[in-house]
């Protein structure tokens, strides 16, 4: 191969390599931006779900409010606090059958 041809081949290879590198860089850049948007969307969604979870926590706490439970238990279900002598205290971690009779 003549020196002229060899120079041309090297030059062409260099141009192609540079172009490829530029294209790859551009593609990576675009992918990064696309993923950035995707991550942003995912985080927004995550935050919305967390907010929804907190909202449900508040609602659950409202539903468990003693005043509400009492408002349902006493007039609607006819429930009442047991007489003191009917209460059997079961100790945590006691591991045994509580004294007294369970009804």
């Amino acid at each position: 191969m003549s020196p002229r041809r060899r120079f041309l081949a090297l030059w062409t290879a260099a141009v192609v390599a540079a172009t490829c590198a530029f294209v790859v860089h551009l593609a990576l850049r675009f992918e990064t931006v696309r993923l950035g948007y995707a991550v942003g969307e995912a985080r927004r969604a995550q935050r919305q779900w967390l907010d929804r979870h907190r909202w449900l926590t508040v609602e659950a706490a409202s539903l468990r409010a003693p005043a509400r439970i009492e408002a349902i238990a006493r007039p609607l279900l006819g429930m009442d606090a047991p007489p003191v002598h009917d209460v059997v205290v079961v100790r945590e971690g006691g591991g045994g059958v509580p004294r007294g009779r369970l009804r």
């Binding site: 931006v33 950035g36 991550v39 985080r43 927004r44």
Partner: peptide, 13 residues
């Protein structure tokens, strides 16, 4: 945070 022309966050929060 990095935002685009429209104000959207590009690289997530």
């Amino acid at each position: 945070v990095l935002r685009d022309r429209t104000g959207r966050v590009v690289f997530g929060e």
